[in-house]
């Protein structure tokens, strides 16, 4: 379909340490532009492993990943880095920010790397994203001095800086308290509604998943069930 932005084609992945284990056992699905999808499943069922394969960071798998129709199999490292920079925004569980930089600079770095806009423009865009997320006043603070919820919002702003085709998140609320989890979820929902941003979020929080458009359920490295959700 024209509208498919991300497709997993029969993905199989093994871990060899300490013994050979098949963590992904033929995963097939595709995501359309504007989809807000969650992946749920028990801890250890392979959700993170799948997400790292889809994000192009993990290249040790069988099958194929198509991003915007282009196969990621057999591509060189600099090419994959460029894809991540341009097309994918990533939000991690442990809000990894670069502590050497200010909040603003953290958000700007992927934009500077892309080099599509001038430094001034990237800065203006970064401010814009921070404003959208309601944290513009933190822009000049050092990234190390923020609270967990604030950090995660900065990470989302960073993921948005290059207007990515898709945002991927690995339990982005997993390390936050109830209040902050809700805040972050509201942001995702806002992005989905207002910007029609495509998102693929791994979570084991059933409340979170229940509010997304589509839920992919995994068990033992396989998709066992998919539900469309018309709420949202």
């Amino acid at each position: 379909m024209e509208n498919t932005i991300l497709a997993a084609v029969n993905i199989v992945k093994y871990f060899y340490d300490p013994v050979k284990v098949k963590v992904l056992n033929g995963v097939n699905f595709s995501i359309h532009r504007g989809d807000f999808v969650s992946i749920v499943g028990k801890s250890g069922c392979g959700k993170s492993s799948l997400l790292y394969v889809l994000s192009t960071m993990d290249t040790d798998y069988e099958g194929d990943v198509l991003i915007d129709g282009i196969s990621m199999q057999q591509k060189k490292e600099p090419y994959l880095a460029k894809i991540r920079n341009e097309k994918i925004g990533f939000v991690f569980q442990f809000h990894y920010l670069l502590n050497e930089f200010t909040v603003l600079k953290n958000v700007m770095l992927p934009g500077l790397k892309l080099h599509k806009y001038s430094e001034k423009e990237v800065e203006a865009r970064a401010y814009d994203k921070l404003k959208t997320l309601g944290i513009a006043d933190l822009a000049l603070k050092n990234a190390a001095r923020l609270s967990g919820g604030e950090k995660q919002r900065v990470a989302i702003a960073r993921a948005l800086i290059n207007d990515p085709d898709i945002i991927m998140g690995d339990e982005p609320t997993g390390n936050l308290d109830k209040k902050n989890s809700e805040l972050v979820f509201d942001i995702f929902k806002q992005l989905s509604h207002e910007l029609n941003q495509t998102m693929l979020i791994v979570t084991h929080d059933p409340d979170f998943a229940a509010k997304t458009n589509r839920i992919i359920r995994m068990e033992d490295g396989k998709i066992v069930n998919e539900e469309k959700n018309l709420v949202g």
Partner: peptide, 8 residues
């Protein structure tokens, strides 16, 4: 993080 966000 640099690598995850697109630095080669």
């Amino acid at each position: 993080i640099l690598k995850a966000t697109g630095f080669a």
